[in-house]
Amino acid sequence: MGQKVLIVDDHADIRRLVRLTLGKSYEVFEAEDGVTALETAQRERPAVVVLDVMMPGALDGFQVLKAIKSDPDLKSTKVIMATARGQFEDYKTGKSMGADEYVIKPFSPIRLAGMIKEFVG
């Protein structure tokens, strides 16, 4: 088993897409809301988190990002924001909060896989 990757998205199709793209090279976890995502991240300490922004529940993507980046245990965790919010403001917010990459839906799953591979090394 390879590195851990956490996929956070409220849409099952997207989670499935990312999982399919990454294939067997990574240990893939899924979360469909912010709270679950943060719990999973803190528990599994994934190398990469693919994080949606707009999600139901108490925490949205940015809050999760903030929490991850402020968690010393998750210092090495790279976060790729994958969101349907395409405005430049969102991109800026994400970057300023420490997102390592920011992709806008619809994205190329091949390129996302490339990004993750790069982060994992």
């Binding site: 849409h11 199709d13 997207i14 793209t21 349907a84 395409g86 806008i104 994205f107 799953p109 091949i110």
Partner: peptide
């Protein structure tokens, strides 16, 4: 507008992503 875009982008992401996968894998 943002919401509408977002709502469209989500199914689009599935279409775009899966079709790309089908093409490449």
């Amino acid at each position: 507008l943002a919401t509408a875009a977002h709502e469209l982008r989500t199914p689009m992401a599935s279409i775009f992503g899966f079709s790309e996968l089908l093409l490449c894998q």
